[in-house]
């Protein structure tokens, strides 16, 4: 197990390192260097001499790899630069918005599990019936439906037609727990749909595979009821491959948060990222890219660790 964990950690760090290089290169690809971009926003800087001064101050005249090392060092020490749009420190901006997005993530995972698990289990137990076919079609639809269209349909139904939920906006929990709940209900549902579809499909196939195993027959031969077989003997081995789906689906959830926060006007990290793209606010874009990768890699690391814990063949070697 120790070797397994060490391996996963090493992999995560290698990929993070590569991501930092990729992001650094991408940021250089953005039209205009950051100083010019800043100059475009802040007219006081539109003086060539000042710009040259700033270039030297920020090290932009040095060779690329030196720039990279400096940039990486600063980034790790928490100096993520200053937003060209708001003038705020990017590090502070990020952690101010993080809780909002985390809340949204939690909500979407909740929806995914709440819908995906029962559907997947149900269709596995009623395999090859019309119910199974319905669930499978629903699941593919859930996986395919674009976040933005689903959002629009829900807004149209629940805000425009029925006036049940707010069409947009975010209420902090401290201000009004109920308002917070209703403001996140639709966005988190939309973000969770893809995961729900994936869960339903994977749980179905995984459970079907497990239920066909010899050890399930052994369990039945002991005199266990079908329910006890399902809960005591099938659930755990069936869950192991499903855990990896979380890693697969997470990229979608994160990407979804960008569109959803934009649509529903939620002041989280996704909204910050989209705004930064509009403004070519490159320190924010850089931070967004890196932290998104950190997010996805961390979740995948967690998934691998849970996988290792669930499967004794990995845990005890």
């Amino acid at each position: 197990m120790k070797r397994y964990i060490a391996g996963r950690l090493l992999y995560t760090f290698v990929i993070l390192f590569l991501v930092s290089i990729l992001v650094f290169i991408l940021a250089r690809l953005l039209p205009g260097d950051p100083i010019q971009a800043a100059a475009m926003i802040n007219m006081d800087l539109a003086n060539q001499e000042i710009i040259q001064d700033l270039r030297i101050r920020f090290g932009l005249d040095r060779p690329l790899y030196v720039q990279y090392v400096i940039w990486l060092r600063d980034f790790i020490s928490g100096d993520w630069g200053v937003s060209l749009g708001s003038g705020e420190a990017v590090f502070d901006m990020f952690f101010k918005r993080l809780p909002v997005t985390l809340e949204l993530f939690a909500g979407s995972v909740f929806w995914s599990c709440l819908i995906g698990f029962p559907l997947g289990i149900l269709s596995a137990l009623r395999r090859n019936t019309w119910l199974d076919a319905m669930v499978t079609a629903t699941a593919i639809t859930g996986v395919s439906i674009p976040v933005f269209w689903e959002g629009i349909v829900l807004i149209y139904l629940f805000s425009v037609v029925f006036h049940w939920l707010p069409a947009a906006g975010f209420v902090p929990f401290a201000e009004s727990p109920l308002g917070n709940f209703t403001s996140l209900l639709m966005p988190s549902f939309v973000m969770g749909t893809h995961g729900a579809g994936l869960f339903a499909r994977y749980i179905r196939s995984s459970l079907l595979e497990v239920l066909g195993q010899d050890y399930i027959r052994t369990a039945r031969a002991k005199g266990l009821s079908e329910k006890a077989v399902l809960i005591g003997h099938a659930a755990k081995p069936a869950m192991i491959p499903v855990v990896t789906v979380v890693g697969l689906a997470w990229g979608y959830v994160v990407a979804g948060s960008f569109i959803v926060e934009y649509m529903f006007a939620i002041p989280g990290l996704g909204r910050m990222g989209v705004d930064a793209v509009f403004l070519r606010d490159f320190p924010v874009i850089q931070a967004t890219l890196i932290m998104t990768a950190v997010n996805v890699l961390l979740v995948n690391l967690l998934v691998d660790l849970i996988y290792g814990c669930l499967d004794p063949r990995i845990r005890i070697q």
């Binding site: 991501v19 039209p31 989209v274 998104t292």
Partner: peptide, 14 residues
């Protein structure tokens, strides 16, 4: 490990 949409946005911006 970076979701496609986010990379796409950055590249579209670039």
């Amino acid at each position: 490990c970076i979701p496609g949409l986010i990379l796409l946005l950055v590249m579209a911006a670039a």
